[in-house]
Amino acid sequence: MTENKPWLDHYPGTVPKTIDPDKYDNLVELYEECFNRYRMHPMSICMGVTHTYDDVDKASLAVAAWLQAQGLPKGSLVALMMPNVPQYLPIMIGILRAGYVCTPINPLYTGRELRHQLNDSGAKIIFIVDNFAQALEQVVDETSINRIVLSKMGDMMGLKGMLVNTMIRQVKRLVPKYKLNDPKHEVTKFPDVLKKGKALPFQAPTMASEQKAILQYTGGTTGLSKGAVLTQRNIIAAALQSEAWYRPVTSNMNEAYINMVMALPLYHIFAFMLSLLGMRSGYTFILIPNPRDMPGFIKTLSKQPFHIFPAVNTLFKGLLDQP
């Protein structure tokens, strides 16, 4: 083997030379293993509100059941346009569990950029936080979107969520005015999706490893952004590769008590893969909805210990510039 792959001679002894990308039949099987293994362990903390792996499992099943009830054809595209809030991972996993393909969208996109991705992907449903609904309103009539699920930032934060939503809307005024009242848009509130989904039957679809899972768009730095098709097997292989290199580094810790700062946006592939890597070992994600708010970011970091902090140079530089 090493004759044709000389780089393997340079692998550390603790890193395996191969992985088995067919260990799981599909990505949902991997997610369900994580839920069953760490069910009562904290999975995310956001603005002081904690959700367990069990919470995320149940919420994602409700999303999946609701989506199946919408009658979408198998393999349909569902868009997800949110920052790092507690509902992001339940929605994304729910889309996959329902048998559909998720296309994550940068919530900071302009109307023009959003229109391109929605039309290029052919998404029929979009889950969106209302902070960014104005951009959708500008272009939705020029897309194939026929149902909108509107969420507020605090929708999965219980009583504290009411305070969060009031602060964001009334005090910080971070929700530009929008009108999506036309019945043709079929607007549904996210809490209603969870409520109705919990009462609906869920039928686990048959999924093969070569089926599409994520349509991940590039940054568009050299022109229009392009959709990269990621199959179930692609993502499983990437997760196991990451784990093969990372596990030796963390093996001397109790991994189920590792807190990972999730400031990188989950709609980017970097953070998405980190979420899979962390779930495989029962990490708790400290979700940062807006890392550009440096005072708020630092306040969050000061509230609990963190062990892993993946980021990009600009974010570390931004923190170093703070007193």
Rank of each mutant, 00 (worst) to 15 (best):
L67A: 05
Q68P: 06
A69N: 14
A69F: 08
G71A: 03
G71H: 07
G71M: 02
L72W: 03
P73A: 13
G75V: 13
V78S: 04
L80S: 13
L80Y: 06
L80P: 05
M81Y: 07
M81E: 11
M82H: 04
M82T: 06
P83F: 12
P83L: 09
N84Y: 11
N84S: 05
N84K: 11
Y88V: 03
Y88I: 01
L89R: 05
L89S: 08
L89P: 00
P90T: 11
M92L: 07
M92F: 12
I93F: 15
I95D: 01
L96Y: 03
R97D: 00
R97N: 03
A98W: 01
Y100P: 06
V101N: 04
C102T: 10
C102R: 05
C102I: 08
P104N: 12
P104R: 10
Y109V: 00
Y109E: 04
T110S: 11
T110M: 03
G111E: 08
G111S: 04
R112S: 14
R112L: 12
R115D: 13
H116S: 02
H116D: 02
Q117Y: 13
L118W: 02
L118M: 05
L118H: 00
N119I: 02
N119A: 01
D120P: 07
D120H: 14
D120F: 12
A123F: 13
K124L: 04
I125D: 05
I125M: 07
I126C: 01
I126M: 04
F127H: 03
F127M: 08
F127R: 00
I128E: 00
D130L: 02
D130K: 15
D130N: 15
F132N: 00
A133H: 00
A133C: 04
Q134P: 10
A135K: 06
A135N: 14
E137A: 15
V139N: 01
V140N: 08
E142S: 09
E142M: 10
E142K: 09
S144G: 03
S144F: 08
I145L: 04
I145M: 01
I145T: 05
N146W: 11
R147G: 02
I148L: 04
V149I: 15
S151E: 07
S151I: 10
M153C: 10
M153Q: 13
G154R: 03
M156H: 11
M156F: 14
M157V: 02
M157N: 15
M157P: 04
G158D: 10
G158I: 12
G158V: 11
K160I: 10
G161H: 07
M162T: 07
L163G: 09
N165I: 06
N165Q: 06
N165Y: 14
M167D: 08
I168K: 10
I168H: 13
I168V: 15
R169E: 11
V171A: 02
K172D: 04
R173F: 03
